Computed example of a mutant assay.
Amino acid sequence: MTLTTEELAKYLDHTNLKPDATEEDIINTCKEAVKYNTASVCVNSHWIPLVTEQLKGSTVNPITVVGFPLGETNTATKVFEAKTSIDEGAEEVDMVLNIGELIGNNIDFVTKDIKEVAEAVHEKGKLLKVILETSYLNDDQIVAGCEASEKAGADYVKTSTGFSSAGAQLDDVALMRKTVGDRLGVKASGGIHSREEALAMIDAGASRLGVSATVKILSD
């Protein structure tokens, strides 16, 4: 696939989820996103009010993560976190599903967990992405996670938090795209460090990329 830098930028969620990120770091992340006109800035929920203010007047969206990075917080907590972040300016929410329950094949619980967050997010007119954390999953579990996310009403499925043993893999992205077809978006996240890697993920089926190496990717 051939994309201009401007076109590629709109695939990117410029991400800063570092636990030691300071206010200055987050402001710099926002400045980089505005400079390159990325799709969004993705941050932990604490920073959403600051990011919303920094991005005002731009086409870059503030987005946040929920149940991050383990997915093991209870559903009510995920719902509260999502609603609060949206009230503070988030346009999209990336939630981590309950990984252990997915591996344990408790699909009813996984679906219900996602559904309650999806309903809260959609009630406010925003988008929900569901993080599977594919590094822990086999192919059957990836398919099951995608199917549960679709049944629950999610808008995207996403590979990874970037905090596990591995990030996005081309085969996983392709499998996710095959499973959801054109009905959901697919976000590849974690370990994407170059323009070549970014384009390969898009070729495999990704419609959004979560990256912290945005400046390098768009400068390559």
Results as ranks from 00 to 15, higher is better:
Cys146Thr: 05
Asn44Val: 02
Phe109Leu: 13
Ile114Pro: 01
Trp47Cys: 09
Ser189Pro: 07
Ser85Asn: 11
Thr59Leu: 06
Gly67Phe: 05
Ala188Glu: 05
Ala148Lys: 03
Glu53Asp: 13
Leu170Glu: 14
Tyr36Phe: 15
Ala148His: 07
Ile99Trp: 09
Asp113Leu: 10
Gly167Phe: 12
Lys151Asp: 04
Ala152Pro: 00
Ala198Phe: 04
Asp94Thr: 08
Asn138Arg: 09
Ala198Leu: 07
Ala213Pro: 08
Ala198Met: 09
Val130Gln: 03
Ala174Gln: 11
Phe68Gln: 01
Val121Thr: 11
Leu175Asn: 07
Val96Asn: 01
Glu150Val: 03
Thr29Gln: 14
Ala120Ser: 10
Ala76Ser: 14
Val66Pro: 02
Thr75Leu: 04
Pro19Tyr: 13
Ala154Pro: 00
Ala166Met: 04
Gln54Trp: 03
Leu50Met: 13
Asn28Ile: 01
Thr84Asn: 10
Ile86Met: 15
Asp140Lys: 15
Val41Lys: 11
Glu150Gly: 08
Asn37Tyr: 01
Ile217Gln: 08
Val41Glu: 11
Ala200Thr: 03
Thr214Ser: 14
Trp47Ala: 07
Tyr156Glu: 02
Asp182Gly: 03
Glu6Lys: 13
Ala82Ser: 14
Lys124Met: 14
Thr4Ala: 06
Gln54Gly: 04
Leu102Trp: 09
Leu184Asp: 00
Leu184Trp: 07
Glu197Asn: 02
Leu17Ala: 03
Val130Trp: 08
Glu91Cys: 07
Val51Trp: 05
Thr4Asp: 04
Ala206Gln: 05
Val96Glu: 02
Ile192Val: 13
Glu53Val: 08
Lys83Gly: 03
Lys112Ser: 13
Gly67Ser: 13
Ala213Gly: 05
Ala154Gln: 03
Glu24Pro: 01
Lys112Gln: 13
Thr59Glu: 13
Val96Gln: 02
Val143Gly: 06
Asp25Pro: 02
Ser58Arg: 10
Leu127Phe: 05
Thr15Tyr: 08
Leu102His: 08
Asp203Gln: 15
Val130Cys: 09
Glu150Lys: 15
Lys115Leu: 10
Val66Trp: 03
Asp172Ala: 15
Ile99Lys: 11
Asp94Ser: 10
Asn44Ser: 06
Ala9Asp: 00
Val43Leu: 12
Glu147Thr: 14
Ala152Phe: 06
Gly71Met: 06
Gly67Asn: 13
Thr59Asn: 14
Ala90Trp: 10
Ser85Tyr: 10
Glu147Ser: 06
Lys187Ala: 07
Ser164Arg: 12
Gly205Val: 00
Met201Tyr: 04
Ala166Trp: 03
Glu24Cys: 01
Lys151Arg: 14
Asp203Ser: 13
Val41Phe: 10
Asp172Thr: 12
Gln141Glu: 15
Ile131Ala: 11
Val93Phe: 04
Met1Ile: 06
Glu147Ala: 04
Glu6Asn: 11
Ser207Asp: 06
Thr59Ser: 15
Gly191Tyr: 05
Thr38His: 08
Ala118Trp: 07
Ala168Trp: 05
Lys18Gly: 14
Asn74Pro: 08
His122Ser: 10
